[in-house]
Amino acid sequence: MTIVCNPFCDDVLDNGRSLGPSPIVHISVKPGSHRVTLKKGDMTKVISVIVVSGQVTAQRVSMK
């Protein structure tokens, strides 16, 4: 899974587990539905990401 925030996010969480600041590039996660929380200062966005086995899933999110 790859997550890119524009501008960068301070923290990216996958189902509540911190993955660190963005960009998150090619991190291995289990297939299925993921609730991804993006944090930038006081702003928080939550997106749903479906990961399919054997495929690269990428999301680009505007944090403006």
Results as ranks from 00 to 15, higher is better:
59 Q>F: 12
13 L>H: 11
12 V>H: 00
36 V>I: 15
13 L>V: 01
49 V>D: 00
8 F>K: 11
46 V>K: 06
33 S>P: 08
31 P>H: 09
27 I>S: 04
45 K>V: 02
37 T>A: 03
48 S>P: 03
1 M>D: 00
42 D>Y: 11
53 S>A: 15
7 P>Q: 03
19 L>G: 07
31 P>E: 12
47 I>R: 05
27 I>V: 14
52 V>N: 06
18 S>D: 03
3 I>H: 01
39 K>S: 07
49 V>G: 01
24 I>L: 06
14 D>P: 04
26 H>N: 14
55 Q>E: 14
20 G>W: 05
7 P>M: 04
1 M>F: 09
36 V>T: 04
10 D>C: 02
36 V>R: 04
9 C>H: 03
10 D>Q: 10
26 H>T: 11
38 L>S: 02
58 A>L: 13
35 R>A: 05
50 I>Y: 11
12 V>A: 01
58 A>F: 06
11 D>C: 04
37 T>G: 00
29 V>C: 02
38 L>V: 09
22 S>G: 02
15 N>L: 02
4 V>Q: 05
63 M>F: 05
39 K>M: 05
19 L>N: 06
20 G>S: 10
54 G>R: 10
8 F>Q: 08
27 I>D: 08
53 S>P: 08
62 S>N: 15
33 S>K: 15
2 T>K: 03
21 P>V: 01
2 T>Y: 01
36 V>F: 01
52 V>H: 07
7 P>H: 03
50 I>V: 15
3 I>R: 01
13 L>P: 08
6 N>K: 14
28 S>H: 09
47 I>M: 09
28 S>R: 11
20 G>P: 08
1 M>G: 02
3 I>F: 01
44 T>L: 00
2 T>S: 14
6 N>S: 07
61 V>N: 07
7 P>S: 01
4 V>E: 09
2 T>F: 00
31 P>M: 08
17 R>L: 13
13 L>Y: 15
42 D>T: 14
23 P>W: 06
52 V>E: 06
33 S>F: 12
59 Q>M: 14
3 I>M: 00
